[in-house]
Write a protein that binds this DNA or RNA. Structure first.
Lengths: 103, 103
DNA sequence: ACTTACCGTAATTTATTACTTACCAATAGA
DNA sequence: TCTATTGGTAAGTAATAAATTACGGTAAGT
C-alpha cells in the first residue's frame, strides 16, 4: 500500500518541518535548507522521501528545483486517514454497545 | 506538542499493525504478539510507545494486561490531522488563486 | 506450596536511518 | 569563457531505533 510511504515520511520531525514550510509557499531547495540545522544534501534526501510518498512534487525552473505540496497526494492521504480513524472509532463504538447490552 | 508522539508512533509499520489489530477488539499482550514476527518483549515495547502517544490504553484484569484503543487520544489526533491537511490545502488553494489572477 | 502463564524492564546487539563530506553536472550571470 | 550558484547522488560515519535474551515479579490453577 502507498499510505505506508506517507506514514513513514511524516514519522520524521525534520520532514514534517519541511512539509510545513512548504505549506506557506513553493520553495527552492536552498531556501528550504536555510534555517534547518542540517546540511543541504540531507535536505535533498528528505525531499526525496516526501516526493516518493507523493506529499510534495518538483518543478524545475531554470537552475532552481522548486518543491511544492502535492495536492492529489495530500487529499489521498487525508481520505485514507479519515477512513482509518473512522474504522477505529466505529469498531470501538460497536464494542462499547455490546458491552453495554451485557449489563 | 503531543501530536509528535502520535506521528512517531504511527511511523513504524509494526506499531501500525498492532494498532489495527486493536481496532477489532481489546487484546491481551500474548494475543497481540501471536502472529507478529517479533518477540513478545518487543511487542511490549511497541505498546509502550503507542500508550505514551495516547493512541491506546491499558486495563489490567487479573493477570492479563488488556490493551484497547484510546478513544479520546484518537479523536484528538484526528482533529489535529484534519486541521493539518486543511491548512496545507487551503494555503495551496490561496496560492493557486493568486497565480490564477496574475494571468 | 508449587507450577504455569502472563508481562514488564534492563542490558545488549543488530539493523535502520539520518547526516556529513566529497564529488559532479547544469544553468545563470559576469 | 570563466565563475557563482544550485542541487542531486555516492560513500562512509554517526546516531537512533528495533529487536533479542535474560531476568524478576505477580496472579491463577493444581
Amino acid at each position: 500500500m502507498n499510505s505506508n510511504l506517507a506514514f513513514n515520511a511524516l514519522g520524521d520531525p525534520t520532514r514534517r518541518a519541511i512539509f510545513e514550510k512548504l505549506q506557506h509557499r513553493p520553495m527552492a531547495v536552498v531556501d528550504i535548507a536555510s534555517g534547518l540545522p542540517i546540511s543541504r544534501p540531507a535536505v535533498s534526501q528528505h525531499l526525496k522521501v516526501l516526493k516518493e510518498a507523493k506529499l510534495i512534487n518538483l518543478k524545475t525552473v531554470g537552475n532552481n528545483n522548486i518543491y511544492e505540496l502535492n495536492r492529489e497526494g495530500i487529499i489521498a492521504m487525508r481520505n485514507y486517514l479519515d477512513k482509518f480513524w473512522d474504522d477505529a472509532l466505529s469498531n470501538f463504538k460497536a464494542l462499547a454497545e455490546q458491552t453495554e447490552k451485557k449489563k
